[in-house]
Design a protein around this nucleic acid. Structure first.
Lengths: 136, 136
DNA sequence: CTTGCACCCGTAGTCGCTACAGGGCGCAGG
DNA sequence: CCTGCGCCCTGTAGCGACTACGGGTGCAAG
């Protein structure tokens, strides 16, 4: 029941304590009460909110997405269609990046495998960058 | 044979012309000759160098990696072992990111699929963020 | 003559933090 | 009583790799 300091809050939610100040500055965390010393004094609700933020960040949601999701998570909302839309859009994004990365992986793996560490004129790695654009 | 302007160089290599100025500022592209008007005057060699940079960026190499690869691509180097090492390290990096993204994809896809757009108390998307940390 | 284009320069903004610099407050040990 | 420690406070600068803007110049065509 007694308030938490910023350090304890950060540890409880699993984030860096400087990130908490950052979230406050950008309006993602509300400005908390202050102790007589001027230290921030947090409640349990802040731990839940900060943990929500941390999980969403781990899943790759942007700050603006999280801002929206936090609003949608309030009990006053009757449906989660909007939350689903945000998650679906993010999923599409993740899948696009996954496809891009898989392509890179394929090209890099093929090139590195062909490189024996021999002389420069025939180095597959440098050749690809110099002349490339053929097999993508 | 006649020199290219920055705009033509950028178009020839397929990059934004402001990126060329940026590469010059950070020392990735050499400062070119100047026409009487003060406009930058580029040669064919610059097109090749800038194209090398663009391809390396498309493959996800960092600016510092590219700086090293450009040096290694000079004919004075007898072996490409170092280039291979840089490419291998980057490939390891790409594979790590690929694994991370695949994990995100799995979690997001599962959650979105379970969400019917129903009432908030049972929204899988918001529930995962609120209570999550169970099935990763 | 004036319109439009491509170029010039320097600087600020993007994203999501992280890392200082420079200070304060309270408590425990010497 | 003094010193050091550990936590907290504020504000600001830095990361990577650009992108975008403001405000100016030179040059050719209509």
């Amino acid at each position: 029941m007694q308030p938490l300091t910023i350090g304890r809050l950060a540890a409880a939610a699993g984030v860096n304590f400087e990130a908490v100040r950052y979230y406050e500055r950008i309006g993602l965390m509300p400005p908390p009460a202050r102790a007589a010393s001027g230290h921030r004094a947090y409640e349990e609700a802040h731990v839940r909110r900060l943990t929500f933020i941390r999980r969403a960040r781990e899943l790759g949601f942007s700050i603006e997405d999280i801002r929206a999701l936090l609003t949608l998570a309030e009990p006053s909302h009757a449906s989660c269609v909007q939350a689903q839309e945000i998650a679906q859009a993010h999923l599409d994004d993740v899948r696009a990046k996954l496809a891009d990365l898989a392509k890179l992986e394929r090209i890099l793996a093929g090139t590195v495998a062909r490189c024996s560490g021999g002389p420069v004129p025939s180095c597959p790695v440098l050749d690809m960058l110099d002349a490339g654009a053929k097999r993508n």
